[in-house]
Nucleic acid binder design. Structure first.
Lengths: 234, 234
DNA sequence: CGGCAGTTTGATGTTACTCAATTTAAGTGG
DNA sequence: CCACTTAAATTGAGTAACATCAAACTGCCG
């Protein structure tokens, strides 16, 4: 079960972990990707507060991190794309800070977490990758706080579309501004603190204005500049 | 200029940095606290994106981290109490992710940031402190995202009061449920994505119900259990 | 005493939520 | 290929929460 196709163009996380494991700089040499797991759409992969003896990385498909309140309200913290670690912090925290659910069918790979002693002995390269990934993760959280605290529904939705489109573009060639987009209205709503009904209204407004069309799990951006203008610079 | 009084009961950050610097386990031995800075209420201490060659720690007073949008909207990310590092991530990120302003008169101490090589050579104790502080900082961000995304104005304000009261209690002896509370309505509003006017209304509602009174920079909690019941468990 | 910044209160407006009905899309089994 | 079922999206009407605007009030300091 090779996973040399597992892309991680953002953080180099996969490659670095493989390197740390196999002791070689070339992921292709790290013969066997460890413990590959498959999950079906909607399936919960990890539970908040559960002990997490391993580091999880999404290999294929989409997933999302979320927190559920006692009364059923749900906050989606972010969406995971292939190559994303579930959480950078999880490298040194043996407890999950949030739950993760599969959005599409997914493949997840698991690494043994290095213990405290092993973490101290890690290479500079590994440590730098960790530090950068940690910074980016934190920057993402700060940005989301700012969006939720200051932006209108239109701005929030435009932000999410732009944000995901950018990450998708970095991972694969996109033609005609057409992106795979497996989120239901409910997911968009729970990520942005809105209701599905209101998301639907805003999206049809976007459609009427010729900004973008979201249907059948495909996002089509028709007027990128105008859509970008809706997102406040953070 | 000694700073042995500088408390940091949460993360042990101060002590650990001093230890790393002085090479001794007892902060009291680390004779000179480095580069102490004073700032007046309202004064900006650091600016977002500015290069930050040093690690900053709040020694005395209150401050807050925030992000400002181009159009003047402001998101307060959190409040700093004595002993808090401005940001844990700042230990390995030479750029500020947010601005910081003094709320009261403050004292700030500055440490030289260890370079990449020095960070690799740090003691296990130091690294563990860093990892834990990093985890807690991230957990705080996730919690705030959840509060902003799912909670009503009443719940948000109750959360903020409870959250700050807990941190204050951990730092000093509080009598009669009476806390120092130098925030203006504007700060509460900008931290929670509300307007000062609405915060005022909710607070007078709390007062009418005998939950708490906020005036003259003092927060008086009159009915802790009832106030706590407003905060959804996260 | 006057002026200023912050808070409170009232009246009104807007945004987004709720409830409910309808339409569309996606399966499923005959 | 076509009924039938089910989940999701859309649309409309009414409502609640919060924002905005503006005026009055408070405490503070010169």
């Amino acid at each position: 079960m090779l996973c040399v196709t597992c892309p991680n163009r953002d953080s180099g996380f996969c490659g670095t972990l493989l390197e740390a494991k196999a002791g070689t700089a070339d992921p292709r040499r790290a013969a066997h990707w460890p413990q590959l797991q498959i999950a079906r759409p909607g399936e919960q992969i990890t539970a908040r507060n559960a002990p997490a003896p391993q580091i999880l990385i999404l290999c294929a498909g989409w997933a999302y991190r979320y927190i559920e309140l006692a009364d059923g309200r749900r906050q989606i913290l972010g969406f995971l794309l292939p190559g994303d670690p579930f959480s950078v912090v999880s490298v040194f925290d043996p407890h999950m800070q949030f739950s993760v659910k599969a959005l599409t069918e997914v493949q997840v790979s698991r690494f043994e977490r290095p213990d405290a002693r092993a973490r101290g002995a890690m290479s500079d390269r590994f440590r730098l990758t960790m530090e950068n990934a940690s910074r980016d993760e934190h920057a993402g959280a700060i940005e989301l706080i700012t969006v939720l605290g200051t932006c209108s529904a239109e701005e929030r939705i435009a932000y999410l579309l732009q944000h995901l489109a950018q990450r998708l573009k970095a991972r694969s060639v996109i033609r005609d501004q057409s992106y795979p987009f497996p989120l239901r209205l409910r997911h968009i709503a729970d990520a942005l603190g809105l209701t599905p009904v209101h998301v639907s209204r805003v999206l049809s407004h976007f459609r009427d204005r010729g900004l973008c069309v979201l249907s059948n799990g495909i996002l089509n951006v028709l007027n990128q500049p105008e859509l970008d203008r809706l997102v406040p610079a953070i």
